[in-house]
Computed example of a mutant assay.
Amino acid sequence: MHARFVRGAVRSAAVVAAVTGTLTWAPAANAQPSEPTPSASATVADTPAPDAGSVEITTKDTAGDGLPGAAFLLLNSAGQEAGHGTTDAQGKLTFPDLAPGIYRLKETASNSPLHEVVADQDVIITPGVTTRLTITDPFKAAKVLLQAKDDKTGKLLPGATVNIGTGTSTLLILTTGDKGTASGELPVSSRNMEFWVKQVKAPAGYDRYKPSKTFTAGPGAPVTVTVTNTKTATSPKPHPSDKPTSKPTGTPTPADTPGDGTGGVKPSAPDTGTADADSSSTAATAPDSDSSPPTPAGSLAHTGADATPWIAAGAGILVIAGVVTLVAVRRRTTTESEPDDNSKTN
């Protein structure tokens, strides 16, 4: 009886609920959690992430040889480290699993006493692609010390300028300072290079060193280059006794100086470098003396020295004439005395 009553009460409650529309399980429904269902979470987890990229570095020198042990640092666009490492025995290094974007690559050490590090550079990482870079570390420059010296005393000379180069290219220009030296860095592209040196300007008071010298230099090695100069030859200074004087050094004679027609001595006029026609015309208009004939126009003026041969010739003629006269007189005397001797005989 009691069981029937319970079943009837349950039926009555179900009928009332159906009629009034009230959900008796509403509190239980409101207690369900608000997180997504397991099926929604799986959908989000299955969304694929962007593909990663990588960068592969190969480090060499200018001769093409790999450089092991070179150290690199990789920074992302925010300046944060994205990786670091050193090259292997073949000079290779790889940075894997990099998100696409722009990175900054820095070489922090070359691990070689002969090589310099390269400048920083940007690297673009593309999704799913390996970016390959070849880094060429340059050789360290050779350190050159230039000296200019006096070839006799070895004194260092300032103001000497030289060009240094290889082939047809000038790589370095140096000028010695107050101490007679100059220094600079000479770029090299191999472990041993030959260079030429040519002086283009000599120190003051010296002749330019004209030969072209050669020398060998290596990466990072110091080398000294010396050029020698000879003093410029100078003309000797005139001796005080060599200076011309305005006073005559001796007394002129008539044979050396033409007369003035009064028996006095007339000094010779200095040579002014004018044409001979001027002096000849003067001599033609001013006769020398009564015994000397006038000088023909257009000829050089005659001096006493020019008349000496004529005087000697005249003296010779006079001597000959005297001899001839003496012979004639003796013959005449002999002829006149012959009749007297004949008359005495008869």
Rank of each mutant, 00 (worst) to 15 (best):
K247Y: 07
S246N: 11
K247Q: 15
T249Y: 05
V265C: 11
P240C: 00
P248T: 07
G263C: 03
K266F: 10
K243H: 01
H239A: 15
P252H: 11
T262Q: 13
K266R: 13
K266G: 00
T262L: 10
P248H: 06
G264V: 02
K266N: 12
P244E: 04
P252G: 15
T262A: 07
P248G: 08
A269W: 06
K266S: 14
K266D: 07
G261Y: 06
P248A: 04
A255K: 11
S268N: 13
T253A: 04
P236K: 01
D260C: 02
T249Q: 12
T262C: 02
A255Q: 14
S241W: 15
G259W: 00
P248D: 05
G264R: 00
P244M: 06
P254Q: 03
G264E: 05
S268W: 03
K243V: 13
P267Q: 01
K266I: 05
P248V: 07
T245H: 15
K247G: 10
T249L: 03
G259M: 01
G264A: 05
T251A: 15
P258G: 07
K247L: 12
P267N: 04
G261Q: 05
G261C: 06
P244W: 03
P252K: 09
G259N: 10
G261T: 03
G250A: 15
A255P: 08
T245W: 02
P267K: 04
P236L: 00
P238Y: 00
T251N: 12
T257I: 07
H239Q: 10
K243F: 06
S241A: 03
T257N: 14
S246W: 08
G261F: 06
K237S: 00
K266C: 03
T245L: 10
P254I: 10
